[in-house]
Write a protein that binds this DNA or RNA. Structure first.
Length: 585
RNA sequence: GGGGAUGUGGUGUAGUCUGGUUUAACACGCUGCCCUGUCAAGGCAGAGAUCGCGGGUUCGAAUCCCGUCGUCCCCGCCA
């Protein structure tokens, strides 16, 4: 090894030791007759001092030529800093290394930006020079935090009897779900592998194989448009267990999260995490991943206003619509324009209008108040728990539109009015998802989760009469309004699987062609099994208080799915295409 | 596919609405010189930008118009 210590290591107890340090020149303070450098490696910073009276003139001259980010090898003696010159900001701040030897291992051009958290740099520049961006303390911290998280996960699951198994990256395209990334087969002209959207089928086959407890830190690929929380490739903590029910999965996942938060952030999570059904979540928050760090719960006021003189509401209720409201504290002073902005937001999500009641001096002010009897207004006020200074926002529409638009208003106001405690980590389970959802465009039923999700066995009577009514044994883990894990108990019996396929309009032939290997496997003794897959990127993003998963991914892609550093994707030559039997059009 | 924001020396911004007192300003960085206790070192001097790209309007465009490209946020999409 070139070095004897790292740059975060030396303390007062090391004074007078002869040491060798390597690293990057982090900063330079040249006093002419005396030069200070902060030398940086992964572990920290150590001040190096070059004093011409204590070294050869040659070396001092060399030191004068050092610039930012040169990679150097320093030898010297650890010294206690003179009284009053200690730096309390550095763990190594009580000492410095008096250099006696210097070797430039590699010079560096002037960097496009400084290696410091304080400098704001456009993401475009950061991604082009990602290897420099990762030198910055924040990014280094994020990447190392991610590693520690994964390490805790592996240790925990190992302790629980799980084994990590790798599954193929080159696999088969499956219908439904996201768009696949395809890889052409050279050996089989016209045939393609698909990159896995998740190891779903393989982990179920590992259960059939008798592995009982499987996990994998698994890369998943989806060729869909990107967002702050979506990249074309992301990492799941993929888990599957045999002989379990929903409760076992919850307990495992709660144990895992508790361990992770304890070991990485020293935070004690309270378990069990609260649960709410999909229906409750939609009814009260308009979302299947509600942010429960703040209230603004929906209240259904349909029955209160159904018989009032206000025709708009009455009509909507008559046509299977609903009227729901949230009570927003302290915004009764909102101007016309501010209310217009809220209305515009509601419009974006399909609501035709936004009604409002301002509570001032105990009375309700609203352009539509005159249509309601005093006792109706009072009942609404009471139901909403509205106080002076509050404003009740009301949306009347089809249930889906009300949920989406009022839900969006809720999130917007929760953020805008600072109702959210940013330090809180609020976990909850959302359970009893519907088994199917109807695709009106294609006039067919689709799986809400995936086609291997077990139904809630209390609901199987609806298979032929009302599939939309059926609940599934699938569940999401929600953290601060983000879905961070999704899973289900799987079907392990052939006849139920066939029933699902027939509801989805997948005939026996098609099922055999697409999932034949899985269905066949189920005929050789498949244990009951289920699993869950937390998203590592989303989880660590929230834990670190970042706004985008790009901040926890070493080499992420832009919104156009491009890697600005490597310039991928790129063109390939005619020879490569010919070998793959591909002709561009 | 759609909506919105944005692009000015190496980096981050001001200037753009209201075209001309701009020879495009400021901070950081960079270069040179001075400097023995700094740690966001300090002082002095200096270099560095055809204002994303293309076209148009105009006597005159960073500024107005059209197109185009990149980046970001959102909708659709993401079992």
């Amino acid at each position: 090894m070139i070095r004897t210590h790292n740059c975060g290591q030396l303390r007062k107890t090391d004074v007078n030791k002869e040491v060798k340090l390597v690293g990057w020149i982090h900063s330079r303070r040249d006093h002419g007759g005396l030069i200070f450098f902060d030398l940086r490696d992964r572990e920290g910073l150590t001040q190096i001092v070059f004093n011409p009276q204590q070294m050869s003139a040659d070396i001092f001259q060399e030191a004068e030529k050092l610039r930012s980010e040169f990679v150097v090898n320093i030898s010297g003696k650890v010294g206690q800093r003179p009284a009053g010159t200690e730096n309390p900001k550095l763990p190594t701040g009580e000492i410095e290394v008096a250099a006696s030897g210097l070797e430039v291992l590699n010079p560096a051009k002037t960097l496009p930006f400084e290696i410091a958290d304080e400098t704001e740099i456009s993401e475009e520049v950061r991604l082009k020079y990602r290897y420099l961006d990762l030198r910055r303390p924040r990014m280094k911290k994020n990447i190392m935090f991610r590693y520690r998280t994964v390490k805790v996960i592996r240790d925990y699951l190992d302790g629980q009897g799980f084994i990590e198994v790798e599954t193929p990256i080159l696999t088969k395209s499956t219908p439904e779900g996201a768009r696949d990334y395809l890889v052409p087969s050279r050996v089989h002209p016209g045939n393609f592998f698909a990159l896995p959207q998740s190891p779903q089928l393989f982990k179920q086959l590992l259960m059939v194989a008798g592995m009982e407890k499987y996990f994998q830190i698994a890369k998943c690929f989806r060729d869909e448009d990107l967002r702050a929380d979506r990249q074309p490739e992301h990492t799941q903590i993929d888990m599957e267990m045999s002989f379990v029910d929903q409760e076992d999965i919850f307990a495992l996942c709660e144990g895992l999260m508790t361990e992770v938060f304890k070991k990485t952030l020293s935070i004690d999570l309270k378990t069990p995490f609260p649960r709410l059904t999909y229906k409750e979540a939609k009814d009260k928050y308009g979302s299947d991943k509600p942010d429960l760090r703040f209230g603004l719960e929906f209240k259904d006021i349909s029955s209160l206003v159904a018989t009032a003189d206000f025709k708009v509401f009455a009509e909507i209720i008559k046509n299977q619509g609903v009227v729901k409201a949230i009570c927003v504290p302290g915004i009764a002073g909102y101007s016309r324009k501010e209310i217009d902005d809220l209305t515009k937001l509601a419009n974006e999500f399909g609501a035709k209008g936004l009604a409002w009641f301002k509570i001032n001096n105990g009375t309700i002010e609203s352009p539509i108040a005159k249509f309601f009897k005093a006792e109706v207004l009072n009942s609404i006020k009471e139901l909403m728990g509205a106080k002076d200074g509050d404003m009740i926002l009301i949306i009347a529409d089809a249930p889906k539109v009300v949920a989406e638009s009022l839900g969006r208003l809720r999130s917007y106001l929760g953020d805008k009015l600072n109702l959210i405690n940013k330090k809180e980590f609020n976990f909850s389970w959302v359970v009893d998802f519907p088994l199917f959802q109807y695709n009106a465009e294609e006039k067919r039923w689709e799986s809400e989760h995936h086609p291997f999700t077990a139904p809630n066995y209390d609901d199987v009577e609806y298979f032929d009469t009302d599939p939309g009514q059926m609940r599934s044994q699938s569940y999401d883990l929600v953290l601060n309004g983000t879905e961070i894990a999704s899973g289900s108990i799987r079907i392990h019996r052939k006849e139920i699987q066939e029933k699902i396929f027939s509801t989805l309009g997948i005939g026996p032939e098609e099922a055999k062609e697409k999932f034949g290997f899985l269905l066949e496997a189920f005929e050789y003794g498949a244990p009951p099994h289920g699993g869950i897959a937390p998203g590592l990127d989303r989880l660590t993003t929230i834990m670190l208080g970042e706004d985008s998963i790009r901040e926890v991914i070493a080499f992420p892609k832009t919104q156009k799915a491009v890697d600005l550093m490597t310039d991928a994707p790129g063109q390939v030559g005619e020879k490569q295409l010919r070998e793959l039997h591909i002709k561009l059009r």
